[in-house]
Simulated scan of single mutants.
Amino acid sequence: MTDKSEFLHPISKYQGEFKPETLVFNANLQEFAQKVGYVCALETGGKINSNQAYQQIRELWRELKKSKKELGIGAPPDQQE
């Protein structure tokens, strides 16, 4: 990894059945995990307090859930677009 961006934002290869919506959700999930790691590091390092960390992670979770719903991941086949 010579590129700083690859080091800071590693992306793992997708392993599931290929569908565009699952690929997008996988990318969103990886981004969520990366951001949660940053928030945890900020809280551990004393840069933000635990309440701020909780609120930020809660908002990230809401965004991930919204993404899942919009992409139709996990919905019964008759409800998927």
Rank of each mutant, 00 (worst) to 15 (best):
I73E: 00
L71D: 11
T2N: 15
A33I: 13
S50D: 09
G46F: 11
N49T: 14
G46M: 06
Q34V: 04
R58T: 14
P20G: 00
E70D: 10
L60A: 01
K68Q: 02
S50P: 02
K35E: 10
C40Y: 07
A33G: 05
I57W: 03
Y38G: 15
F18P: 07
G16A: 09
I57F: 01
L42C: 10
S12C: 14
E59A: 15
P77R: 08
S5H: 11
K65V: 01
F7M: 13
L23E: 08
E6M: 07
E17Q: 15
R62D: 11
K68R: 00
A75M: 11
K35N: 07
H9L: 00
D3K: 08
G45M: 08
D3S: 07
Q30F: 02
P10C: 15
V39P: 02
C40L: 14
I57T: 09
F18Q: 14
L23M: 09
P77H: 05
K69V: 01
K13Y: 10
S12N: 14
V24D: 03
S67R: 00
F32E: 00
E17F: 15
F32C: 02
E81F: 09
K47G: 10
T22Y: 14
L64C: 03
S67T: 03
K4C: 04
E70N: 03
Q55L: 02
F7S: 13
I73S: 00
E6I: 05
L42A: 08
E59W: 08
R62S: 06
A53S: 05
V24S: 06
L29Q: 15
N49R: 12
N28A: 13
M1T: 15
A41Y: 13
H9N: 05
E21C: 05
E43N: 03
G72L: 06
F32P: 02
Q79R: 15
Y14L: 05
E81M: 05
E70F: 01
Y38F: 12
E6L: 11
K65M: 04
F25N: 02
P77N: 07
F18H: 10
S12W: 10
L23P: 05
G16H: 07
H9T: 02
A33E: 13
N26G: 08
K19N: 04
P77F: 14
F7E: 08
E31W: 05
L71A: 10
S67E: 00
P10N: 15
V24Y: 07
F25A: 03
V36P: 04
S5P: 00
L64D: 00
G16V: 06
Q80I: 06
K47C: 13
K66I: 10
L64N: 02
A53R: 00
G45R: 12
G16T: 07
Q34N: 14
L64M: 02
P10K: 12
S5L: 14
N49Q: 15
K19D: 01
I73V: 02
T2E: 15
A53W: 01
A75T: 11
G46A: 10
